[in-house]
Amino acid sequence: MKIPHEAIPQHKKGFMLQEMDGEMLLYHTAEVTTTYLNPSAVVIWQLCDGQLTVQAIIDELAQRFPDAADLSQDVVTTLQDFLSRDLVELTWLNSDE
C-alpha cells in the first residue's frame, strides 16, 4: 500500500501499552492480540500521534538521527507494517472538506 507523505498516522484506539527497555508490547483487549515493537518501531509508533504527517515524522527522525541514511523508506515500510496489523489509521488534514 502506498502511503502519501501528507497523510497523518494515528494510533487506533483500544491498546494497552507496556514499554520495556526501549521495546514495546501493545495489547488490544477487544481483538485479543499482542504486538511486539522493536526499538526502531517504537520511535515511529510514538510519533504517530495524530498531529504529524508522514513527512513530518521523516523530518523529525532525520533531526534526531543526523548520521542515518535516508530514513524515508524505513518510515514508510514501518507504517505499512503498522497499517497491515491494524495498529494505526491514516487521517488527512482536510478530511472533512
Binding site: 520495556m20 508490547l25 495489547y27 499482542t34
Partner: peptide, 22 residues
C-alpha cells in the same frame, strides 16, 4: 528481551478473558 518474552507469554495465557486487563 523482556518484551519478546512478554509477547510469547501472552500467547499461552489461557484465562486472559477472566482478568480485568487480560
Amino acid at each position: 528481551t523482556p518484551a519478546q518474552a512478554g509477547m510469547r507469554l501472552m500467547s499461552v495465557l489461557v484465562n486472559a478473558r477472566n482478568l480485568s486487563d487480560h
